[in-house]
Simulated assay, not measured.
Amino acid sequence: MGGMTSTPTSPQPPRRLVLATRNPGKVTELHAILSEAGLPFELVGADAYPEIPDVKETGVTFAENALLKAHALAQATGLPAVADDSGLCVDVLNGAPGIFSARWAGTHGDDKANLDLLLAQLGDIADEHRAAHFFCAAALALPDGTERVVEGRLLGTLRHTPSGDGGFGYDPVLQPLGESRTCAELTPAEKNAISHRGQAFRALIPVVRELLG
Rank of each mutant, 00 (worst) to 15 (best):
V44E: 03
K56A: 04
P40E: 02
S86V: 07
P80C: 00
I52T: 09
H108S: 07
S101V: 01
A72D: 03
P24S: 08
V92Y: 00
E29P: 12
G87D: 04
Y49A: 10
Y49F: 15
L79N: 08
N23T: 01
A48K: 15
D84M: 11
L34Q: 00
N114Y: 06
V92K: 05
D47Y: 00
L30H: 02
G25H: 15
Q75P: 05
T61I: 05
D111V: 12
A32D: 08
F41K: 04
K56I: 02
V27E: 15
I33C: 04
G87T: 04
S35Q: 12
G95Y: 10
L93K: 04
G78Y: 12
A66H: 10
L39M: 13
P50F: 11
A113H: 14
G59F: 03
P97Y: 01
D84Q: 09
K26W: 10
A66K: 13
E29D: 13
T61E: 10
K69W: 05
I33V: 15
P40D: 08
K69H: 08
T58Y: 04
D85P: 09
G45M: 09
E57A: 06
I99F: 02
K26F: 03
D84P: 12
V55Y: 05
A46M: 10
P53S: 08
F62S: 00
V55D: 00
A105N: 14
G78L: 01
P50S: 05
L118C: 03
K56T: 07
N114D: 13
P80T: 04
L73Q: 12
Q75A: 12
V90N: 05
F62P: 11
H31I: 05
P53H: 03
L117C: 02
H108Q: 13
Q75H: 09
H31W: 01
A63E: 09
F41R: 01
L34R: 03
S35D: 13
A83V: 12
S35L: 08
A83R: 06
N65S: 08
P50Q: 11
L67C: 14
V82C: 02
L43Q: 01
P50R: 03
T28K: 12
A70S: 12
P80G: 05
T58Q: 00
L39D: 15
I33Q: 08
G95I: 04
L73D: 07
E29M: 10
D84W: 08
E29Q: 13
H108W: 06
N94S: 02
V44I: 15
D84L: 07
T28Q: 04
V90G: 02
V60I: 06
V82S: 05
D116Q: 04
D111E: 14
T77N: 07
L88N: 07
V82I: 10
G78C: 09
E42P: 02
G25L: 06
G59R: 06
A32H: 11
L115V: 03
L88A: 05
E51R: 15
T61A: 09
K56E: 05
K69E: 01
A63H: 10
A102W: 14
L30K: 12
T28F: 02
E64S: 07
H31M: 03
L73P: 14
R103G: 12
E51N: 13
D110Y: 08
K112G: 02
F100Q: 15
G106K: 11
A46E: 11
G25R: 01
G109S: 13
L93T: 02
P40T: 04
S101C: 03
P53K: 03
H108A: 14
A113F: 14
